[in-house]
Amino acid sequence: MKILNCPLNGPRNISEFICFGEVTDMPNPNELSDEQWADYMWMSNNTAGVVREWWCHAATSYWFIVERNTITDEILKTYPANEIFKERVEF
């Protein structure tokens, strides 16, 4: 069983976590064309390599950031979201 190191709960079984996809900037929908908005909705980098993603520990509803390699299936780094989000994001 694969172990993921949760910044809040320590090493836990990976089946306790949910992956929510790559960390991206959310654009302001009022400033985008329909096409740009559709791109934001559907398109994916689907990177073969190192990605930075949102993950959530389901049992404690704790959201954090995971850096992992999608080719080798290695978890490289996990850390709290406030390391990259220094201030509150309004949307």
Partner: peptide, 18 residues
């Protein structure tokens, strides 16, 4: 299985997750 990777060589982004 490699659609996104090859499409990127042609500068095309796809709505695919592998």
């Amino acid at each position: 299985g490699m659609s996104s990777v090859v499409a990127k060589m042609a500068g095309i982004q796809l709505p695919i997750r592998s």
